[in-house]
Nucleic acid binder design. Structure first.
Lengths: 203, 203
DNA sequence: CGGGTAATGTAACATACATTACAAGTCAAC
DNA sequence: GTTGACTTGTAATGTATGTTACATTACCCG
């Protein structure tokens, strides 16, 4: 027994996670009832409780499964042998979309609110989802500095400034605008990091 | 009659607003009951409804009264005859505290959530509270450019980058960390805008 | 002091919701 | 096909909460 019995279980789990994520992102955690989630996912309330313990557990699972899918696009780009300034522009182009996508923005919203109840939860999310990029980039900047390809004393501070330039506007606008009118001018977002390249003399 | 009768009314109104703001900032809008607000403010549920119509009206009033108190520190600093780069550093020092204070961060949180229900509300808040700074600074940058004190073609874009550098880290950290441990290193935040000064050749 | 307006306390009301219980149904494996 | 674990549908439970109603009290003004 139960050779393929996991199958149903996994399907139910994914269906519920998908429905819960969609509704949480659209209306916020507190304004979505478990009944509404089950109505959307199919299945029954009982299985939801079987799989996720309670509503808070479901939220954790939703956020956790989204974090897992974090793509490591930055790794790939580092390998390229391009000039550092071009690498920075490429990272800008590749990361802006995913870090300002409605899914990311919506996750941020619900995590921030849940953080009022459980600070550690929000802190971990921020660390895993955002600060991790800073650390990756800081390492890269340090290499460039040591190789004479840039002049950067505080590499972590510099990486922070890079992401500030890149993401502040797009993320704040996303957080305060739920719907998707005003389609964020199609300009290449890499113009935003030019002050960074100039100041740190990135070759 | 009612010459000084407004007095009680105004007192009640302010007491309720104060209690509601404190509780909303601490726990979030959805997780605070009107009963809890009244218990804290003193008074009665009936007066709350008399003054604010309903819970949503109370939220609007809380946010509205906070926005009114926006200080115009930036105006004062422009008058000074200092070098532009010093003016930028002074603005950085003066605005960082107020735009990253717990009150501001908490307001942002509740407005962002309410924005899921009423997008126009969130949009207006963002525009009045944040975008207005960008426009003010853009005008200043334009003047400097015209006077040969800086090289800035897109003054609004530049102003946006300035505030991105200055606020992204401190606001994001605030949004994801409800309590106030890790007291935000006492460093002068003006170091964050040095790339701006370098890139735009601000004198 | 007396009169009326407004504030208070309390309770009622309807609803929504998280959570649990359980009987009936479904599916996979032998 | 039959078994048995898992899933489903539905209802029950208890509680919290937005909102309204109302009788009572406190306050301000003439």
């Amino acid at each position: 027994m139960l050779i393929c019995g996991d199958r149903r279980r996994v399907d139910r789990r994914e269906a519920i996670l998908e429905a819960a994520e969609a509704l949480f992102l659209e209306h916020g955690y507190d304004r979505v009832s478990l009944g509404a989630i089950v109505k959307r996912s199919g299945g029954s309330l009982a299985t939801l409780y079987e799989l996720f313990e309670n509503k808070q557990g479901l939220l954790r699972a939703v956020v956790g499964s989204a974090v897992e899918e974090r793509d490591d696009a930055i790794e790939a780009m580092i390998a390229d042998g391009h000039r550092p300034s071009e690498v920075l522009r490429a990272i800008a182009r590749n990361l802006t979309a995913s870090l300002s996508a409605p899914r990311m923005i919506g996750l941020m919203r619900i995590v921030m609110i849940e953080g009022l109840r459980d600070p550690e939860f929000a802190r971990r999310f921020y660390s895993e989802y955002s600060h991790v990029w800073t650390l990756h980039l800081a390492a890269l900047l340090q290499q460039w500095n040591d190789a004479g390809l840039a002049v950067i004393d505080d590499s972590e501070g510099a990486a922070d400034l890079y992401f500030s330039l890149l993401l502040h506007d797009v993320q704040m606008r996303g957080l305060f605008r739920t719907s998707d009118d005003e389609p964020s001018d199609g300009r290449d977002p890499s113009w935003r990091i030019e002050p960074f390249i100039t100041h740190y003399r990135v070759q």
